[in-house]
């Protein structure tokens, strides 16, 4: 696991984009106090999911309405079809640690990191 950010960097119901890893990931703090980490780039088109809307355990892409489950990464409906990767998160003494998924990321066409 690697340290990604501090809990104090996160705002409830919002995401931040973390570019210190490749491809960038998005880290969210839910209103229940849970921290989730997924790939930040929507699988449909180049958009930062950290800028999306967090509700009911899903993040809605800020562009085109597809919603991704923060637990499974699955997309609910078009235009996105492929899931985002979900990364394992541990919070320890106010620091957020992430173990990056070993799966291949589903980056949208034309996006290369």
């Amino acid at each position: 696991m690697q340290r990604i950010c501090s809990l104090s960097d996160l705002t409830e119901d919002e995401g931040i984009r973390v570019e210190s890893v490749t491809p960038p990931i998005a880290v969210f703090l839910t209103s229940e106090g849970q921290v989730h980490a997924i790939d930040d780039t929507c699988t449909h088109q180049n958009a930062s999911l950290a800028e999306g809307w967090l509700e009911d355990g899903c993040i809605e892409c800020p562009l085109h309405d597809s919603r991704f489950s923060l637990r499974t990464g699955a997309a609910d409906a078009p235009p996105a079809k492929l899931p985002v990767r979900v990364h394992r998160v541990r919070v320890d003494e106010g620091e957020v640690y992430v173990e990056l998924s070993s799966e291949a990321p589903n980056l949208p066409p034309g996006v290369v990191y």
Binding site: A47, S48, E51, G52, W53, E55, E60, P62, L63
Partner: peptide
Amino acid sequence: QGRLMTRWRK
């Protein structure tokens, strides 16, 4: 302005 637009819509 994706973040602001999303917030406004919601």
